[in-house]
């Protein structure tokens, strides 16, 4: 994708508006993004947590490991999803059906000699989400502009709020698809160098078969909703700077290990005036065995601790935000219109 293509065509919003009008919709944007209102549901509760090593409370990881560093982190992936309720239409039966405009994007930055460049090309999609089952004439959306993808959410419920909740999940599904495609390309293209990629956010629910063992998911959540978590006694909230918890395995009983991962917590930084969550990140990796996971955790902890510099202060969530991911975020924000622009556009009608 050429940079010119990445930049949103100024007519895109008008095309989205056309789709809305074609289905007989009315504009009714709301001030917030749907993602800010509704939480994306995950299935982490389905996972079981089991420690695979004992926790060494006395150890700090800011010194180079004696066994060396077998890998290098050279790639950073981030995604972005913005779902905006732009309007609704009324079915012949009198249901109010919301219509969403969603922008999903994904990028990988490559770091060479401390400098960054875009790996491959960033991905960007403009989606209009609507349940076509409620449309009288489905052909009314077929004439949409080629830059816009109209996604049939296939939602059958007539509950207005449920449609909204499900819409962002469907958008997330599209985003995951986009991300996995990008990761597959990356994996194939970089087999030779063997360098690792940091994925912003947890990869726990991504199928291992579609991920690469060279992907490190970086989760910022400290919540442990997993089965067995209480019994395992993970002491992540008691960590001091440069420490990590024991590595634990996360697995489901019902997927034959398709999404089994290993994870641990690292305390990047601490501050007396901040709570125990401050600077706490959770790497999520794929490993062939418990031993391999611990081995990886040993050197990755050191490498990830180095990534705490340069600091990203005063960015939102800077205590857990590493600089390359901040760059990814800046890039993705730069190629899409702002939330204010979109809302203002649909507000005018």
């Amino acid at each position: 994708m050429k940079p010119e293509q990445v930049v949103i065509e100024r007519n895109t919003l008008q095309h989205v508006m056309d789709v809305l009008m074609n289905v007989g919709g009315h504009t009714s944007p709301i001030p917030q993004l749907e993602e800010d209102i509704y939480r994306l549901r995950d299935n982490e509760r389905e996972y079981t947590l089991r420690n695979v090593e004992d926790h060494d409370k006395e150890r700090f990881y800011n010194a180079q490991p004696t066994q060396g560093i077998p890998g290098r982190i050279s790639y950073f992936l981030d995604t972005n999803q913005r779902t905006q309720l732009i309007g609704h239409f009324i079915t012949p039966l009198g249901f109010q059906v919301p219509i969403h405009y969603c922008i999903i994007s994904s990028i990988i930055l490559e770091r060479q000699e401390r400098k960054f460049k875009v790996w491959g090309a960033p991905r960007l999609k403009h989606l209009v989400l609507l349940p076509s089952a409620f449309l009288e004439d489905r052909s009314s959306v077929d004439s949409a502009h080629r830059e816009i993808e109209v996604v049939d959410t296939e939602i059958s419920t007539s509950d207005y709020t449920q449609i909204r909740v499900q819409s962002i999940q469907i958008a997330h599904r599209e985003l995951t698809k986009m991300k996995i495609e990008l990761l597959s390309e990356w994996f194939e293209a970089t087999k030779g160098d063997g360098d690792y990629l940091i994925h912003n956010g947890s990869t726990l629910e991504d199928e291992n078969g579609k991920l690469s063992p060279r992907v490190i998911g970086l989760s910022k959540t400290v919540y442990l909703p997993f089965k067995g978590a209480k019994e395992a006694g993970v002491k992540h909230l008691e960590l001091s700077s440069f420490q990590r918890t024991s590595v634990f395995k996360l697995f489901r009983d019902d997927d034959d290990g398709a999404t089994t991962k290993y994870a641990w917590f690292i305390k990047l930084r601490e501050h007396t005036r901040h709570g125990p969550e401050f600077g706490l990140i959770k790497p999520v990796i794929i490993a062939g065995s418990d031993g391999e996971a611990v081995e990886k955790a040993e050197w990755m902890t050191f490498v990830l601790l180095k990534e705490r510099q340069p600091a990203t202060f005063p960015a939102k969530g800077w205590d857990k935000l590493i600089f390359p991911i901040k760059l990814c975020r800046t890039y993705l924000d730069g190629i899409v219109p702002t939330h204010e622009t979109i809302r203002s556009f649909f507000d005018r009608a």
């Binding site: 982190i73 401390r114 960054f116 180095k306 990534e307 510099q309 340069p310 600091a311 202060f313």
Partner: peptide
Amino acid sequence: TDYISHDFGDPNVEPPS
């Protein structure tokens, strides 16, 4: 921020990025 990024003022520190 930059001062902190250099291990609280060590000019010899070279962050990975």
